[in-house]
Structures are given as structure tokens and as C-alpha cells.
Simulated scan of single mutants.
Amino acid sequence: MNSTKELHYRYLISYLISAIILLFALAYFDVPALVDKLSFALTISSLVLAVLAIFYTVVSAQKQDLQLTKLIETNASLNNAANDITSAASEMRTFAREAPQHFQSLRATLDNMSADFDTVRSAPAPEQPQEDKSGEILAPLKIERPQFLWMFGKLQFTAMAVLYLFVQSSRKNRIIESDVFEKLDLLSYQYAIGVLNGLEATGIISFKLHKGAIVPVKCIDVVWKEIASQIETVQSVVSPAAAHRLRTLVSNIDAHLNP
């Protein structure tokens, strides 16, 4: 049924085309120079179409060049991304191989630190003067100027500054709050306690703790007299950078105690 309709449509279209051609021929059969006019019209049409074709070709070529440029840039970006991914994958593989060793080393370091802390925590307190077999009280260790100078020269710069803060605070009858050490760039409160405990064991100073604050109790005369001059002596014999570091610490302490 559909094929029959399609055939009828074809016949109808062919009849219409034939009728149009016939009407066109009857209308213009006696027009003079019809062939020349048609030729001229076709020539003009060809020229117009040729110009349009050239313009279209130029526009299409520009679009193709732009698309080609974008394609090249995209390809370069993909290559860079692929290289970055490859590099990252290589670093991840390297980390995966080395990570267990690093974690083992870190664990060993933490174990050693824990063992050292337990040793320090369980260490006995400095012994007090005891009686000998004859009943006499043994005299505590006596520190003279040579011994103090030798001991002071063995301290770290920060430990020197901690002792200087202790002495100056003792002069002014001031306690040392726990947060002062970090403010003055003296490492930490725990570090200062360790330094002062070691110095107290030698007998040159004595202190107490009250609600976390350090209360100076005693400081022998040689420390009172020599601390400032010894700091200046150390500054004169060390490197300029180290001298500047120690000078800055002392200046910060003086500014804190003398606002």
C-alpha cells in the first residue's frame, strides 16, 4: 500500500515539473537573446557562489587551525598530567618501601626517649648531708670561684640564661612563673627545671615550686658576684652569632624583670 502511494507521488511530481517546464517554455519562447541572458545569469551566479565558497573556505580553515591549536595544547596538558601522575606514583612507591624503616626508627627513638624519661624520673634526689661513722655531719660540696667558672663554661647558652634569670629574680625577690621561659625563648619550663635541678645538686642554688612557679631560695655569693661578668666573658670568646644569641637572651630577661 505504501509503495503504491510513493509511486503515485513520483508520478505527480514528475507531471508538475513537466508542467512548470512547459509553462516556462511557452512564456519565454519568443524572448530575444534568451540564451545569452541565461548564460550571463549563470555566470553571475557562478561568480557569487565562487566568492561565497572562498569565504567559507577561509573561515573553515581558521576554525580548523584554532581547533588544531586547542588540540595540541590539550595533548601537551595531558602529557604533563601523565608525567606528574607517573612521578607521584613513583614517589608513593618509594615512600611505601621506605616508610616501614622510618616508622621503626621513630619508634626506637620514642622508646629511647621514654627510657631516658623513666630514668630521670626514677633517679634519686640529691643526697642531704649525712653523718659519718663518728657521728659528725659531712659538709656539703663547697663550690669556689674556679669550680663555678669551670662549671659555668660547660653550660649551654640557654642554660646560662636560665641561671641568669634565676639569679636576677632572686635579687629582686621575685618568683618565676612557668610561662616565662617560653616567652623569653628559653626553650621550656621543663628544660629550665632540669637545668635548675642539676645546679641545685651542686649546692650553688636552691629553689622551691609553688603552684608551678619557681621560688628562688638560695644562691651562693660566687654566683651573685660572677654571673654577669662571666656572661660577658663568654660573649667575647664565642662566635658573633652565638654572642648575639646570648646577648639577646640576657636583654630579654632584663627587660622582663625591669619593665
Rank of each mutant, 00 (worst) to 15 (best):
I205Q: 14
L71C: 03
I72V: 09
G198D: 11
P129A: 13
Q101M: 02
L23A: 06
N79D: 03
Q62V: 13
L163G: 02
L68P: 01
Q67M: 13
I143M: 15
P140Y: 08
K133I: 07
P240C: 04
I54R: 00
V31Q: 15
L187Y: 10
L34C: 04
A89T: 13
P124D: 14
S3M: 08
Q190W: 08
G194S: 13
V234P: 02
Q67E: 12
I231M: 10
V48A: 07
L106S: 07
F29K: 04
S114I: 08
E226W: 11
Y28P: 01
N79Q: 09
F152N: 05
I175W: 08
D111R: 08
K142R: 15
L199G: 06
H244Y: 03
Q235L: 05
F95D: 14
L47H: 02
R93T: 12
N252L: 11
S87A: 15
A125G: 05
A125W: 10
G153Y: 12
P216I: 12
F117W: 15
V238P: 02
P32E: 03
K208M: 03
D179C: 11
I72L: 05
G212F: 04
A81Q: 09
Y56H: 10
L199W: 11
T4Y: 02
A82Q: 14
I72E: 13
A89Q: 09
F103N: 04
T94P: 01
D132Y: 04
L38M: 07
F117C: 00
A88P: 00
F181C: 05
L199D: 05
A241I: 15
A108T: 11
R93F: 13
L209V: 11
I21K: 13
W150G: 08
L186D: 03
A82D: 07
E232P: 08
D254W: 03
K225Q: 09
K211F: 14
V180C: 10
I21S: 09
Q190C: 02
L199C: 07
D116G: 06
F152H: 10
S18R: 01
F166R: 03
I253H: 05
S14P: 00
V222F: 04
L71A: 14
K172A: 08
I231T: 05
L23V: 12
K37V: 05
V238R: 15
V223E: 03
Q168G: 00
K70L: 15
Q230S: 13
Q67L: 14
L66V: 10
K211N: 14
L155C: 10
L47R: 00
E182Q: 09
V215Q: 06
I214P: 03
T119D: 04
N2G: 08
K133M: 06
Q130P: 00
S239R: 09
D36M: 07
K172C: 03
A19Q: 06
L187D: 05
L187W: 01
D111A: 11
A243C: 12
E6M: 04
V234E: 02
F95W: 10
G135R: 10
N83M: 11
P216K: 13
S178I: 04
A41I: 10
Q190N: 11
M92V: 14
G203D: 02
A82Y: 14
I13N: 02
N80S: 11
